[in-house]
Amino acid sequence: MSESVIITNELTKRFSNFTAVDAISFEVKKGEIFGFLGANGAGKTTAMRMLCGLSIPTSGRASVAGFDVYKQTEDIKRSIGYMSQKFSLYEDLTVKENMQFYGGIYGMSNKAIKQKTDYVLNTLHLENEAKKLVRSLPLGWKQKLAFSVAIFHEPSIVFLDEPTGGVDPVTRREFWNLIYEAAENGITIFVTTHYMDEAEYCNRVSIMVDGKIEALDSPTRLKQIFEAESMGEVFLKLARKAVRSE
């Protein structure tokens, strides 16, 4: 495969006497779909915040899209997209206005915004909804739109924090088709999830327990190593070892 876009080495975050993230080391390749799993309180969110430039690590090294997480957080922010479980769209703005806004804050030119808006509306078949408030769209559509907005400025990496909470399996499958398409276009996908069927869709999966990465490999290999039928079983075997909970 090609070069690594996320590299961490012994990355650690401590809050007074509590070690949220304990010396994690991993690499994510360009265009890879990387699943970041862990029970609640395992340290996923803290690790992700450090990679997004929202939180300064206590120790260790990490670079995202070639930029250092200590010194170049502004450059990191420019090169990544982000979508959280709460979607991140403004419900009282129209579909089009949302895209214009996100394009605007990433400093895209008006022309680029217009082209990209047309492209997204076209691929999502939302041409007729362009002037409707996001509030009026069904949940599944909102999620797909939120993902398209997160990669609107063509970042090299997109972080998805439990993006498919609360939607039905069919919509989830459609959502994942969008993710595959983005990955094919060279965007690296870093995704956290609670759904084990989604873990199967990833190229590689890491499982965090108590702030440490306990397993990291492709879903097929992980199932072999842990002699499990499914990723769910792998996850349970690991998560049971956890000492701390929420």
């Binding site: 997004c52 430039g53 420019r78 979508m83 990433y106």
Partner: peptide
């Protein structure tokens, strides 16, 4: 949405 703003440049 604030989180998204903070992740943006």
């Amino acid at each position: 949405t604030m989180e998204v703003m903070l992740v943006s440049p």
